[in-house]
């Protein structure tokens, strides 16, 4: 199978389309997937603290939103806006700084999502719309130059597809603090492409998806 991928070889083609290559590259991807076993998860997750919020946010999302798909938000851009898994992302678009009496209108788009014609993008939902001081954590970058060079290293993002059985529901590989609304990233036109789910109308996410503990589970042994 690997040879098949290699056959694509050293070719530069103007007419080659993405579709033709997908099959071949998927094979390649499987072969070269670098398995990482590190998660920025909690050693002892207490997910039920946020149960109420997960259900409420589900109720508030209109069904039309859930079936939408714009496909322009990817894990690549998702992580590019962060410094480590779980850090608050930077603001990737211009924000109004003109001084008027109006409050910051981030939530106008990011509370309920939807298409923004000006930016030609679907607004991703914030998982925590109850917090109003957006720019407490989210900043807009005005330069890509560092003040001095930097020696920053962090862990890899959680690996996808860690289901125990083929076709089984994958576990939740990340911490839920500040990210209690599954729909924000996993459903609708603002969803992240690779982790978008088609069955969000089922509502109770954690019926099937359980937290993946960071440390190996202590297995039960009979004595």
């Amino acid at each position: 199978m690997k040879t098949k991928a290699k056959k694509i070889g050293k070719s530069v083609s103007r007419t080659a389309t993405v579709c033709l290559l997908i099959v071949g590259f998927c094979v390649l991807a499987v072969q070269t997937l670098n398995v990482r076993q590190v998660y920025a998860g909690d050693a002892t997750p207490s997910f039920d603290d946020s149960g109420d919020k997960i259900f409420r946010s589900y109720e508030e999302i209109p069904p039309n939103y859930m079936i939408g798909d714009s496909g322009n938000r990817t894990l690549a851009t998702y992580y590019d806006r962060r410094q480590y898994p779980g850090s608050p992302p930077v603001i990737p678009h211009p924000v109004e700084t003109t001084f008027s009496k109006n409050k910051t209108e981030c939530l106008a788009c990011h509370a309920k999502g939807g298409w923004n014609a000006e930016l030609a993008a679907s607004a991703p939902l914030t998982p925590h719309p109850e917090k109003e001081a957006c720019r407490q954590c989210h900043v807009r970058l005005n330069t890509d130059k560092n003040f001095v060079e930097h020696d920053w290293v962090s862990i890899s993002p959680p690996r996808l597809g860690q289901a125990q059985l083929p076709g089984g529901p994958p576990p939740i590989p990340h911490n839920l603090q500040m990210r209690e609304n599954c729909i924000a990233c996993h459903t609708g036109p603002g969803a992240v492409v690779e982790i978008r789910v088609e069955h969000s109308s089922r509502g109770n996410c954690r019926q099937c998806h359980v937290p993946l503990p960071m440390t190996p589970l202590v297995r039960f042994e009979r004595k």
């Binding site: 590259f25 894990l75 590019d80 993002p157 996808l160 690779e194």
Partner: peptide, 8 residues
């Protein structure tokens, strides 16, 4: 992203 799930 489509070809390499999890690529960053």
């Amino acid at each position: 992203a489509v070809l390499f799930p999890g690529i960053t």
